[in-house]
């Protein structure tokens, strides 16, 4: 049977892609952020996952408002990156895993998650930047993207995203394949790009969120989406990706590593590596 070996949650802002491209990792501005990653890379080198399931949110590359799915699961042999309009380099395609994609789709729809399935799917910085951070230069794992709408309200609730993650965890555990799966949740933490409140950051909430994500993930699911917007900013709600990734771990977890730094671009950046206890 397949096995979930752990979860990594990280911020994904486009500026990280630019910083990698310009080799700014040791620049004083970026160093506190990039220095969080070597322990996670060491862990990945040790546990050697075959596949990464990536919970992320599209920012207007693959999906437009003409059709805006709440939950979209990739079912493509490979996933192309493309020009997003703000000058970060376009990366080579990522390998998919059709067997896991369709197993997840069968299982999730069976658990009453009404999905959109995508046999073609462009992946934006929220998918590519974390993979670049975890495996600089080239991504050795096959991937299954799961996109959660954070563009157009109403968004799925934090509780619903956590349950989606749990259903993904159950599906992987029931998958009759010899595969080691890591789950990624990308986005957040607190930030707001738009409006007079642009630049809003909430360190206290973020730090509580990271602590509770490991020990009591239901804590954050008690907040409504608009509560989370108020507490973490309009883009801070991306933390629902972290809840989905945490949900996939099903049981108790140990936090093997974490990092938190303010700011990168307009964002409070966070990183966590969790493993089943």
């Amino acid at each position: 049977m397949a096995k979930i070996i752990g979860a990594v949650t990280t911020s994904h802002v486009p500026a990280i892609g630019g910083a990698i491209h310009r080799k700014k990792q040791q620049d004083p501005y970026w160093k506190p952020f990039f220095d969080g990653f070597p322990p996670v890379r060491d862990w990945l080198a040790k546990v050697k996952p075959d596949i990464a399931i990536v919970f992320y949110n599209d920012h207007g590359l693959n999906f437009f408002l003409d059709k805006m799915p709440t939950f979209a699961v990739g079912a493509a042999p490979e996933y192309q990156n493309a020009d997003e309009g703000w000058g970060i380099p376009t990366l080579p395609p990522y390998k998919g895993d059709l067997d896991l994609s369709w197993h997840l789709i069968e299982s999730l729809v069976g658990e009453e998650f009404d999905l959109t399935t995508c046999q073609e799917m462009l992946v934006d910085h929220a998918f590519t930047v974390p993979l670049e951070l975890l495996w600089p230069g080239s991504c050795p794992v096959r991937t299954v993207p799961i996109c959660i709408n954070t563009v157009q309200f109403p968004l799925p609730s934090a509780a619903r995203c956590y349950k989606l993650g749990q259903a993904v965890g159950r599906a992987v555990e029931a998958w009759d394949a010899d595969a080691r799966v890591v789950v990624l949740g990308t986005g957040g933490l607190s930030h707001q790009l738009d409006g007079q409140r642009a630049g809003f950051i909430n360190k206290e909430f973020d730090q509580m969120f990271m602590e509770k994500l490991a020990s009591d993930p239901l804590w954050a699911t008690r907040y409504s989406i608009l509560d989370l917007v108020e507490l973490t900013g309009t883009q801070g709600v991306e933390l629902v990706m972290w809840l989905a990734a945490r949900g996939a771990l099903l049981g108790d977890v140990t936090t093997l590593h974490s990092n938190y730094h303010i700011p990168i671009s307009n964002t409070a950046s966070g990183l966590m590596l969790m493993e089943n206890a």
């Binding site: 207007g60 309009g85 703000w86 000058g87 790009l193 738009d194 309009t234 883009q235």
Partner: peptide, 20 residues
């Protein structure tokens, strides 16, 4: 919407701190 507007801002090389 902020995400689409960011693509408009990108035409002029504006980043998120310019917009903020």
């Amino acid at each position: 919407n902020a995400y689409y507007l960011a693509k408009f801002a990108g035409i002029f090389g504006l980043d998120m701190q310019d917009i903020g």
